Amino acid sequence: MSTPDWLTIREGSAPLIIGLPHTGTDIPAPIEARMTSPWLARKDADWWVDRLYDFAVDLDATLVRTAISRSVIDVNRDPSGASLYPGMTTTGLCPTETFDGEPLYRPGEAPDEAEIAERRHTFFDPYHAALTAQIERLRAAGPVVLYDAHSIRSRVPRLFEGELPQFNIGDNMGATCAPALTQAVEAACAITGQTHVLNGRFKGGWTTRHYGRPEAGIHAIQMELADRGYMVDPEGDVSEANWPSPYDLRLAAPMRTRLRGVLSACIDFARHAPGRSLRS
């Protein structure tokens, strides 16, 4: 089966897969025509994260990215529609509002169950088929790490209080990877001198929870960055005039160095984990 043009797969030989589920901004025209605003429809993208991590090819990591906007379908949500954070504000499989609570669709234009099922078939299923295939390919040689890469504005009052730590690590309370991997990632974040937290507001999305099976050699971990580490967060209200801010090379350069340390720690963990083939 051919790869759809909105799906990018870069195969590497290192035991590391980087998922990029929220960097896309593509919205099919018939869907965008029903939305309240093109800007709102793209407001909550993980802005510039694919560019931030593009150095990972030098580490021979595998990258899987969808160009489809999360406002069309969020490939990091439970396809059943179940909330990842019961009792807390979050967005669904096919969101109908932004993180700030603004409606994404004009009255009466939100997708119904049949349309949601079609979007899942068209976009969600191929993305996860690609992740599964890459996990199986690399798992044949031994343990593998699936690193789900995200970012978010440092302050989103509707989702969390105050300012988010710079590095937000999620392993769903230790369920999705070996403790040694979490410890290695925490250590790589700690030496940067930036704030970090484990299983704070973000404990790992559906991707991390679904694929993480450390007993089978599949170790999944999520990294949610506060985006002030590589771009300028707006002061005060977020508007079309100030968001998204440009990718900031001055900020991004040191962040890329820090993230290189994080990804290298993931690869080093996998290469020394029990079950690694001596030929790999």
Score class of each variant (00 low, 15 high):
A82N: 06
H272D: 15
D233G: 09
R209P: 00
E115A: 04
L225S: 02
A184K: 00
T257S: 13
S83P: 07
A252T: 07
M88A: 13
A114E: 14
I152Q: 07
S13T: 09
A82M: 03
A149H: 04
S239V: 05
L20H: 09
G205D: 15
E109Y: 07
E235C: 09
F202P: 01
L20F: 13
G24S: 15
E102D: 15
S37M: 02
M88D: 08
V57N: 10
Y211S: 09
P214H: 09
G236L: 09
A114D: 11
N76A: 06
R258I: 12
V49W: 06
L146W: 07
A82C: 04
G200Y: 01
I17R: 04
L278R: 12
V238P: 03
T208E: 08
P111C: 13
L84F: 06
F99D: 06
P86R: 03
C94Q: 03
P38G: 07
I17Q: 01
T62S: 07
E113L: 06
L278N: 05
E136Q: 04
G162F: 08
G87D: 08
H150G: 02
L263Y: 11
G101A: 10
A141K: 10
P111G: 13
P4N: 09
L251W: 12
A190K: 10
Y147T: 00
C189G: 08
C177S: 06
G217F: 04
T90C: 11
R228E: 11
T257N: 12
V49I: 14
V57C: 15
G12A: 07
G229C: 14
L93S: 05
Y230V: 08
I17L: 10
L263W: 02
A220V: 11
S151D: 02
R228S: 13
R213W: 04
I18C: 15
E163L: 04
D58S: 09
P165F: 13
I218E: 06
P157W: 10
P126N: 05
L259M: 10
D248F: 04
R137C: 02
D74W: 15
P95G: 08
E102W: 04
D268I: 02
H22K: 10
D78L: 05
L84M: 14
T89P: 03
A190V: 13
G200N: 01
P274W: 09
W6C: 11
C189Q: 03
R42V: 09
S151F: 01
L251M: 12
A141P: 00
D148A: 04
Y247L: 02
I68F: 14
L40A: 08
A82T: 06
I116K: 11
P143G: 03
K203A: 04
E224K: 01
G275W: 11
M223E: 08
T176F: 12
W243H: 12
Y127A: 14
G261K: 03
D78C: 05
